[in-house]
Design a binder for these strands. Structure first.
Lengths: 165, 165
DNA sequence: CATAACCATTGCAGTATGCAACATTTTCGT
DNA sequence: ACGAAAATGTTGCATACTGCAATGGTTATG
């Protein structure tokens, strides 16, 4: 027992320290995300943007699928689609093969909204990263990959609350 | 100009790579946050939880202050407080000194809700961190600090969309 | 072919949100 | 000290988000 408390083995202090550092970094990342969202919040609400993001990454979908990915009730998704169709950000048409399903997809304008936010977010993070000492940069890449590896693949629905994905 | 921007000198690839790694890690962290929130979403909505988090970190506040921290209209904050008072998660009383201000603060139950989510989130992140190779752990701590340093202090209101803080 | 499953849709209820208007209280300037 | 101005909480109104339950049409299944 080198530096443990009670019977917690070595390295536990590291875990605590790293967890705190992780939470701090999270706060910053969420702030970046929020700022990137602010740019389009006059055009779409946050729930609407989530819907656009899902369509952007998953491609066209029928209503129940979309609702499932967003983890909302189909009726909620339907009415959101209604509004987005009115805003000309998504397209809603009858499915070619099935007479009951509908096909929902992004318009060019809708894709532009998503791209705008995505680009801004990436730019902002890159700007922060560029301000880091180059030595730390290389270390961080490997370490972050190990972290993501340890975390596994998060379910899609859980990754969208802020329009990530 | 040692490694300037003009023709993108050495090190730019690093930035791109690290930005991607950062975004991936973000997705995971947001997923963790969403899962920790799920535990209490029967008791409070996400906006309500945000309000509790702000009260938890800033202490008792009057209405306009609270609304400012949440970045919502005072009328919105007022009605949310109304509902949270009905749920016995916050307390609303007249301010001792000023005859027009009101003093809003957490009840024990409200504090418990925040603690529950905070604890769960920290536990989940610690679990992931514990699965990382110890070598990567030590490297990640330093690198994350450099990242947070480069990012500066995010404004409070921007850090709360998912109940961080 | 009849029944079941699936899908989109609508009605209803509660929450969140911003804006504008108000009444009351405090502060400020003269 | 008094009146104007600012601050604060509050309410009315309109829109968006949300889930649950019921409905009608379409497809699959037996």
């Amino acid at each position: 027992m080198i530096e443990g408390s009670a019977d917690a083995g070595p390295g536990v202090g590291d875990v605590d320290e790293l967890t705190s550092a992780m939470l701090t970094a999270s706060r910053l990342l969420v702030a970046v995300a929020a700022r990137s969202l602010a740019a389009v919040e006059d055009a779409v609400t946050l729930p609407q943007f989530r819907l656009l993001v899902v369509l952007s990454s998953q491609g066209p979908a029928k209503l129940v699928t979309l609702a499932g990915l967003l983890d909302v009730n189909p009726s909620t998704a339907l009415r959101m689609v209604d509004r987005l169709v009115a805003s000309k950000l998504v397209d809603r048409r009858a499915s070619p093969d099935s007479g009951r399903e509908i096909r929902i997809e992004l318009t060019a304008a809708g894709r532009a909204v998503v791209d705008q936010v995505t680009t801004r977010r990436r730019t902002d993070i890159a700007a922060i990263v560029a301000r880091m000492p180059p030595g730390e940069r290389r270390a961080l890449v490997a370490a972050l990959r190990a972290f993501a590896e340890a975390g596994g693949e998060p379910p899609v629905s859980a990754a969208v609350p802020l329009g990530w994905e």
